[in-house]
Amino acid sequence: MQNIIKTVNLKKLYTTEEVETTALDDIQIEIKKGEFVAIMGPSGCGKSTLLNIIGLLDNPDSGEYHFIDHEVAKFSERQRSQLRKGNIGFVFQSFNLIDELTCYENVELPLLYLKIPSDERKRRVEEVLTRMNIMHRKDHFPQQLSGGQQQRVAIARAIVARPSVILADEPTGNLDSANGEEVMRLLEELNNEGTTIVMVTHSPHDANYAHRIINLFDGKVVTENIKEQFHV
């Protein structure tokens, strides 16, 4: 199957006044369209840095990064932003909903930036909210919802623009086990429908949902476990 993400000798350094830290060192990974990949590793191993680069939020210092058909390692912020729009959906550990916007408005936001006409927006927002089983709370503000509900809104926002890739950063980290389970099932469902999912997690249980686990340690890929597809 076609690679949607491919990195070659990817390197990222963080430099402060006195210390230079190698965050990512010679990373080579390939992720195919429709795959569900988990990235694991201890704190500080470079997971978030990798996710930033994969998510087109940051550039590597050297190496190549192919996203779909583009070599994007040298893209400007503007170019990255253009490519990101509609192609990548993000799910965060702390949900990152905008407090001043209702659930509906939070989900609508990516479509506004894509300049989708309002009728179409309404249809699509309602569709994903219904799917996420959160339609009845659409006019509520994030603080009025439980953690599980907030994460469902966040997932709705991530998928409303129908991206080909979803990047999830510890999506169950702030949830109890029941809500966590529900979120993982939703991600699995989306993957089954063809969306590529790249997830950073500390939880072996969550990682089990993935087809493949990439283990990072000190900025390097140490192992890649290709698993049989199974459910707990």
């Binding site: 932003s81 990101r84 990152n96 905008i98 001043e100 990516p110």
Partner: peptide, 16 residues
């Protein structure tokens, strides 16, 4: 900053 970050992630450009 959180709002700005989120808006950028979902597609906002600096100008907007």
């Amino acid at each position: 900053a959180k709002e700005v970050g989120v808006r950028k992630v979902v597609g906002a450009e600096n100008s907007s």
